[in-house]
Design a protein around this nucleic acid. Sequence first.
DNA 1: ATTACTAACATACGAGTAA
DNA 2: TTTACTCGTATGTTAGTAA
Lengths: 216, 216
Amino acid sequence: MPEKNFFLLLLIAKHGGVEGEFVSSTSKIANATGLSQQSVSRKLRELAKQQFIALQASPAGVSAKLLEKGKKALLEKYSDLSEIFSKTKAKKIFGTVQSGLGEGKYYLSFKQYVYQLKEKLGFEPFLGTLNFSVDEAELSSFKKALKEIYINGFATKERSFGGLLAMKVKINGKILGAVIFPDRTNLPPDTAEVIAPINLRKKFELKDGDKIALEA
Amino acid sequence: MPEKNFFLLLLIAKHGGVEGEFVSSTSKIANATGLSQQSVSRKLRELAKQQFIALQASPAGVSAKLLEKGKKALLEKYSDLSEIFSKTKAKKIFGTVQSGLGEGKYYLSFKQYVYQLKEKLGFEPFLGTLNFSVDEAELSSFKKALKEIYINGFATKERSFGGLLAMKVKINGKILGAVIFPDRTNLPPDTAEVIAPINLRKKFELKDGDKIALEA
DNA sequence: ATTACTAACATACGAGTAA
DNA sequence: TTTACTCGTATGTTAGTAA
């Protein structure tokens, strides 16, 4: 139930803080909000009656302080808004280049993968992946902002190969590539691999420990 | 000017995200909010007319998407709330012990200060202050989390003495003391003084450059 | 199933003013 | 100066329906 006097509650918190007291007068608040003195008076009493604030009113002015219910109401909306904006926020992450074990190169040598990658991503990957480490939570929220493209697994006479998730990203603001998450991987969760139509190590003169930027 | 239909705007953002589209129907939204189908219909059209959202309505349902003005309105409240709640967060700071110039000791020798400190803080301070330096922004946000206690100035035949702000803190998680900010001070803004009922240097065997923790 | 108009009703607002 | 009451008016809401 959207609390009717939410904005007045917010104003009180803005001036008095979460724990502190907001000392003012109904006319000053009226000026600040565009409401009338009478409406402010009434609204404050409503907030107090509903236990959002503790209110003291006298011919000297008013003093308001958040009660638990008031803090909770504000925190709830704060949490909603955090969630909304943090989804879009993580559009860029920074990874630290690491040396891989040549696995990526091995898998990318199979045309069954390459065909699909070319078709679904729009480029034929350079034969090799660039591994990088990144904060796990950041990586997780970054992934949420990206569209998932699935590359199917396949089987040869010898063995079967798992599928992989691919997500298009821009590397260092220049090269269009993709982060890939193989279904079967030995990489720790704070590590990921990126592929691109070119040799990223060469193009950006990357050494282990260097930083790369990935954008959605 | 608090936007009237803020909560509906928030609901749209919650479901459709900042960039995405929220596909629903006025009756579903009515059920979710406790409003009537008619009111939801009207409010959506109001939000659209005010350019907060782009709205498409048809016998198949409604589809809403945030416009720049809508994003801005939500972000503004998000920023307000962040500020309010981040103020309480900074409840602990670390300072670096510095040697003072013995000024604190001089001032604390005046009973006019000591009387008030004892009465308003609940302890009689040890004759001497401990100076420490701390990140200025951190100090500033820490101060906001603390209750201000004012110690009045006074005058003798020879000269007048300024007042000082005192704020109760716990030092190194053990000793209850207070940070003091004299009205007239020569200390740089990233430096502060702390007083306590005991000799803090002795108690914690502090040398210059040692760290102390201060909690609200 | 939808959205949204009309009209009756409920609530909110603020000018005047008392305390 | 204050807060806050009364009360006429503006605004918001929703049931009944049309499309």
